[in-house]
Design a protein around this nucleic acid. Sequence first.
DNA 1: CGCATTTGTGCGTTATAGCGCACACCGCAA
DNA 2: TTGCGGTGTGCGCTATAACGCACAAATGCG
Lengths: 201, 201
Amino acid sequence: MKSISPVETGKLLKSIRHELGWSLDQTAEQTGVSKAMLGQVERGESTPTVATLWKIATGLRVPMTTLLEPDREEGGVLLLRDASSLRVRPSQEGMQRALLFPYEARFGFELYELTFAPDFESISEPHDIGVVEHVTVLRGKVELLVEDEWRELKEGQSLRFPADRRHGYRNRTESEAVVMDLIHYRFIPQNIAGRETQEGS
Amino acid sequence: MKSISPVETGKLLKSIRHELGWSLDQTAEQTGVSKAMLGQVERGESTPTVATLWKIATGLRVPMTTLLEPDREEGGVLLLRDASSLRVRPSQEGMQRALLFPYEARFGFELYELTFAPDFESISEPHDIGVVEHVTVLRGKVELLVEDEWRELKEGQSLRFPADRRHGYRNRTESEAVVMDLIHYRFIPQNIAGRETQEGS
DNA sequence: CGCATTTGTGCGTTATAGCGCACACCGCAA
DNA sequence: TTGCGGTGTGCGCTATAACGCACAAATGCG
């Protein structure tokens, strides 16, 4: 009994190989994996171990994850967003949030525009492990609590920091401050419903 | 003779399992993979097939790629960048570019701040296949050439589009325009030296 | 302490990933 | 037609991934 393979490694391998214009022999030479095996993988007759998957990916000069993607052309890419119609005022008073690009598994991040009113201050709970934030100040001046220390960021400055621990934002000036916040997930948060997991059953 | 495993799936699996507070039995139940196998994988005594890797990842509710990352804690995350000292004027006259966050394999993107002078126009060559750009207008008004059509973006608007085909930017106003450009790579470009590939040699 | 429960590891068997090799199927040239 | 490099596929063999089960060390409770 052969279990259906959950990932389309075969099709991906074949299409990449064809894009490169490589034969099975050539690919075997480059990857160190026998051409018989490569053929079987392409036809879905056997699912490789991660070790051989690594050999294949390295030989093709592509990241391993490429061979694990559900589908190369899946989903439309084109997407227009307008911050002015996206800004909402959530639980915390004194802050507006616009979700410019929502999370998608294939990209691994979400992008916010955050607007802090004067005297705004907020301490955020730690996100899931491995989450990293990239904050860039667009207008005004903000302070970020990172590793138990408040750091001042002026307009044009950016800070990347681990968000899987306590962190916070505040605006001690008398004018509004606007930042971009790019949140990159290593894990897919499991406690947030409606967020896509990896395509499986 | 056992070949060294190129990826540290074992250590990752173990740490994730511990973070969840799960036992091997519990994990076996959730993933559908025998606990003996799980133990062997954790100890690095056997490298799983992508099929079982998928089962494991799905059971743990994490994306498969999480189990393939070189190392959870590798590399410092904290990074401060200042656009004002990063803006450079490259080949094209009429445009300034600041690389806020350079490409890193673990994140998969790079982030630019682009400043377009009045009457600037530029057509970009296609990037590598699978590359997606996310452009957000911070100041002014720009037009983007996407799918053979110029689209106007006002301040606060964002556009995501496939960049593996012809595309371009222009500023037909009389004042400077500033955008954020997040470039997301699916493939790691193989023709650009100095960019990291997936760790091992 | 003794006993139960749960932790993870070792062992023998089966399924299958991975190999080298031979073979069949082209398109092309003599 | 008969070869001849080059494509990909089938076959037998070996290495090993993956299983179920049993064991041993650690934990908890009376």
